[in-house]
């Protein structure tokens, strides 16, 4: 899963899509997920990174990540072919 490369992402979690003019805010967890995806990590690797770094069980995080990626897709924040 790849984030729309044109998306402007600030450290504060503010997202701006220059193609549509839409803007969004995400919490620190969302911002970290987006940062890792932009670095080229796969969803599986994001799950590994989070479960290593934070006290969260793999199953719960996987479910939340699935919901979050659905939101990213709904708002056209992923690459076109995703």
């Amino acid at each position: 899963m790849k984030i729309n490369p044109n998306l402007a992402v600030s450290e504060s979690g503010f997202l701006f899509n220059p193609g549509t003019g839409e803007s969004f805010t995400v919490n620190p967890t969302g911002a970290e997920i987006i940062r890792l995806l932009r670095e080229g990590l796969s969803l599986e690797q994001v799950i590994d990174a989070f479960t290593e770094q934070f006290q969260v069980d793999r199953h719960t995080f996987e479910k939340d990540l699935h919901d979050f990626s659905g939101i990213l897709k709904t708002y056209n924040l992923l690459e076109k072919d995703e």
Partner: peptide, 21 residues
């Protein structure tokens, strides 16, 4: 090009943002 961010009850933009489309 601009996307209207907020409109008045007459449909006029009171805020908008320049976009790359």
């Amino acid at each position: 090009p601009m996307r209207k961010q907020y409109i008045t009850d007459k449909g006029k933009a009171w805020a908008g943002i320049s976009i790359d489309d």
